[in-house]
């Protein structure tokens, strides 16, 4: 595939965040996007027209991840203030605050007890009935959106270190942790598969056919794993990812792998050859997040410089 089909032209710049943007995500149909950042807000944008639609303020600290349901009715966001906020999209109200990751689980070490635990990632499941969050407290927690309970349904605490990223399929919870493992929790089979990559895993993202996991590791390498066998299919190198949580993802056709770099570049690799197909400077600073449009050749990138850029072919 040539680089021409890749979204390398800047279509819009979404400005408004008063600080680093930590995550930018398309919604399920790709018409809108959500961003969140250090300014403690979650923002809803129309990336195609470059319009800021709504700001969701309630977080007490930086917001690290946001996700929206399939029907675009609810948001979930999490961040440095330990709580997980469940929003109504239209009214902008907080429907519920899940009690979040406190270190009660980690209270085996009493010292950790009072540390404000950051929640690194949240995701809805397919039916928006469960929210799964991954936190600094080395656990993944599942929260019930249907009941009024603010307690987690289940706490998975087999991780040895902070859990950075979480993905959900129809029947699985996949989470990547700093301990170097990508763990798949198969609800249907009732088993846990742990793929040890040996390097801290920053971000995981599923391929669109759900057969592969792309794991961004802190040794400046993206690794593509076969989910069935746990085989390492390919490694993508060239970018810098040593100290920040950077996102990576596959393009909508699964033909390329894309990810940001700490020097403000965006990289496109060929999925099979692992060659850098395209790279260009997108931001002045660290590219924290990339999100690819589910259908079109469109991508949004977010950066520490506070801007979100929309890229199209």
């Amino acid at each position: 595939m040539s680089g021409e089909e890749l979204p390398t032209k800047e279509a819009n710049v979404l400005r408004g965040h008063g600080g680093a943007v930590l995550a930018a995500r398309f919604n399920s149909d790709g018409n809108y996007c959500l961003s969140c950042g250090k300014d403690r807000t979650v923002r809803l944008w129309n990336p195609h027209r470059g319009i800021h639609i709504k700001t969701y303020k309630s977080h007490g600290r930086e917001v690290r991840d946001v996700h929206v349901t399939q029907d675009n009715s609810k948001l979930i966001s999490c961040g440095g203030d330990r709580q997980i906020f469940y929003w109504d999209v239209s009214t902008g109200r907080v429907i519920r605050k899940f009690r979040g990751h406190d270190s009660e689980v980690g209270s085996a070490r009493k010292l950790v007890c009072f540390v404000l635990v950051k929640v690194n990632a949240v995701k809805f499941n397919e039916y928006a009935s469960v929210v799964v969050s991954a936190g600094y407290d080395r656990s993944v927690r599942a929260w019930d959106c249907r009941s009024q309970s603010t307690e987690p349904i289940q706490i998975i605490d087999t991780f040895a270190d902070s859990v950075m990223s979480v993905c959900l399929t129809k029947s699985e919870i996949i989470a990547g942790s700093v301990d170097g493992t990508v763990r798949t929790f198969d609800i249907r089979m009732g088993r846990e598969i742990s793929d040890n990559l040996g390097q801290p895993v920053n971000c995981i993202s599923l391929s669109n056919d759900s057969n592969c996991i792309l794991a961004g590791c802190l040794d400046s390498t993206l690794r593509l794993l076969d989910r069935c066998t746990g085989e390492l299919l390919q490694e993508y190198e060239g970018h810098i990812c040593k100290s920040y949580k950077l996102d990576c993802c596959l393009t909508n056709t699964d033909a390329h792998v894309t990810g940001g770099s700490e020097d403000g570049y965006i990289f496109f690799w060929d999925l099979v050859d692992a060659t850098v197909v395209s790279r260009f400077r997108a931001h002045a600073s660290v590219v924290t997040s990339v999100s690819y449009h589910p259908k079109d050749n469109c991508m949004i990138t977010a950066s520490v410089d506070g801007s979100i850029r929309v890229w199209k072919t």
Partner: peptide, 9 residues
């Protein structure tokens, strides 16, 4: 690596 392990969950 990658090393795969399976557990019950």
């Amino acid at each position: 690596y990658p090393k795969r392990e399976e557990f019950q969950w």
